[in-house]
Design a protein around this nucleic acid. Structure first.
Length: 468
RNA sequence: GGUGCCAUCGCCAAGUGGUAAGGCCGCAGCCUGCAAAGCUGCUAUCCCCAGUUCAAAUCUGGGUGGCACCUCCA
């Protein structure tokens, strides 16, 4: 497969360092607030990546961190008079729950910053010993960017003079304006951690490098991981700094391939905490099945900017509905074997192996669905076609995670039991009216059913209803 | 100001040198008591200008218009 490497800025054939074993590290959330659509996008992109890699026969080890030490967490804990752990546990659980509703599998490893302090100390000690980091009179430890001749090689930035001036003033204890903190000394006892460098807390960039060394890096490899991913905003300074730390503290570079997903915008504007226009996942999940959100957020190429709007979301729902209707049509068909039709597998993987071209894969899926429906509309039993189609749908579930639910339950999203009973009762009444050809009455009942936000469809198998 | 990305049908969106995928909407049909669902058919020459080439949406240069990063951020 080919992957677009956002550092080399070109598509590259993907070749793991160690046979068929792939190591993937992705920057996860800082757990101090509810996850928004951007978090979902990133988690989805790399969930898909692991699925596609696995479909290609790779043995993937996927790590995604949980940042549970951070100034914003501390601030929230103080505000709400709670412990840091209470805050981080709450938002970590919420994150997991919401991501699982999007059909996102848990990574193999989810290291937490609080559980990785030793690894951070190790890395910092190495950097101090090799003169790549220094301790200030105030007790902070900074990475010395001037000691790394390859600094800025990742983001290909040029140090700007104005920027230098500005930063020097704001932080006079730094040797260079671009230097960043590995350890911040803090003297508030309630929120500090002990370290060989004194009480305080780690700098944000440090944890990823440390976790990668601890969990993924293998000796004598040129790169600590095969693939490092995250949101596009992390390239600088976060990933630049991670790469510098690892490069200077170890004998390998951080990653062979870098992947950055594009942003989710709202009304053409970046969704951002400072702009206050975040769209929280938990709110979206009240209105839409998680799989609809999965479909929608994955329907545009992962590197493109994504402009969220409810009209397009509704269109994605329609598209996913079609997959589920076909699944409903084939409900109960058993497969003789789990083997996937190689031709179908090839069609789908060819698209996904090209830097995860989901749009193209979806076009193939739409065609497959139309063809199957067309065949099933013709007279005949179509046993072979039915089984083949069920097998195709199963492969879509496996690789893309679309259509994994019971189709009948999918179409009842958000309808409570009482309403279901009412609808069923009305449908029965309507069918009785239809039997006597009292169409005026049956149409009137249908209008009443429609007021529950559902549509109904008469088929040879009976009358079904769906949430609109 | 520095760096980078993008511009394809009314809307969403693939395609990165060989003559425009797919979806939504719309129109015309089939099916249906009527619908819904499903199916069939129809609908673009790729922001502008210049250049390279037998051939360009795809490459080059210049415009115009969006957006992102440079500060916490997925």
């Amino acid at each position: 497969m080919t992957i677009y490497d956002s550092v080399q800025k070109t598509k590259r054939e993907f070749i793991p360092q160690d046979d068929n074993k792939v190591s993937l590290y992705v920057c996860g959330p800082t757990v101090y607030d509810d996850a928004h659509l951007g978090h979902a996008k990133s988690a989805l992109v790399f969930d898909l990546l692991t699925r596609v890699l696995t479909a290609n026969g790779y043995d993937v080890t996927y790590a995604r961190n949980i940042t549970d030490i951070d100034d914003k967490i501390i601030k929230k804990a103080l505000e709400q008079n709670k412990t840091i752990k209470e805050i981080t546990d709450f938002y970590t659980d919420a994150y997991h729950e919401e991501m699982s509703q999007l059909g996102i599998s848990r990574p193999n490893i989810e290291p937490k910053a609080t559980e990785s302090l030793e690894a951070m100390f190790e890395l910092t000690k190495k950097l101090i010993a090799s003169k790549h980091a220094y301790l200030t009179s105030e007790g902070d430890v900074y990475f010395d960017t001037s000691s790394d001749s390859e600094y800025l090689s990742l983001s290909k930035r040029v140090q700007d003079e104005d920027e230098r001036q500005n930063r020097v003033e704001s932080s006079s204890h730094k040797k260079n304006p671009a230097d960043f903190a590995l350890w911040k000394s803090v003297h508030d006892k309630s929120v500090t951690f002990d370290s060989p460098f004194g009480a305080g807390r780690p700098g944000w960039h440090l944890e990823c490098s440390a976790m990668i060394e601890k969990h993924l890096a293998k000796p004598n490899m040129k790169f600590a991981v095969d693939i490092h991913g995250g949101g596009a905003d992390l390239l600088f300074p976060h990933h630049e700094n991670e790469a510098a730390q690892t490069r200077c503290a170890t004998n390998h570079n951080l990653a062979n391939y870098w992947m950055h997903n594009g942003f989710v915008n709202i009304n053409g504007e970046k969704m951002s905490k400072s702009l206050g226009n975040s769209f929280f996942l938990k709110d979206a999940l009240k209105e839409y099945d998680g799989e609809v959100l999965r479909f929608y957020l994955l329907s545009t190429h992962y590197r493109s900017n994504f402009n969220f709007n409810t009209q397009d979301l509704a269109i994605s729902k329609k598209r996913l509905d079609k997959i589920y209707r076909l699944k409903k049509r084939l409900f109960g068909i058993q497969l003789d074997s789990k083997d996937t039709d190689p031709a179908w597998k090839a069609i789908l993987l060819e698209a996904l192996n090209d830097d995860m071209n989901v749009s193209l894969a979806l076009a193939h899926i739409d065609e497959m669905v139309s063809d199957a429906n067309n065949t099933l509309d013709q007279p005949g039993k179509h046993q072979l076609i039915k089984k083949e189609t069920v097998s195709h749908l199963a492969y879509i579930e496996e690789v893309l995670g679309f259509g994994v639910k019971n189709p009948f339950e999918y179409f009842q999203f958000g309808i409570d039991k009482e309403t279901k009973a009412k609808i069923d009762m009305l449908i029965e009444k309507r069918n009785e009216a239809k039997k006597t050809k009292d169409f005026a009455a049956s149409d009137k009942i249908r209008d009443e059913i429609l007021t529950y936000g559902v549509s109904i469809m008469d088929t040879a198998q009976g009358t079904f209803w769906e949430k609109v």
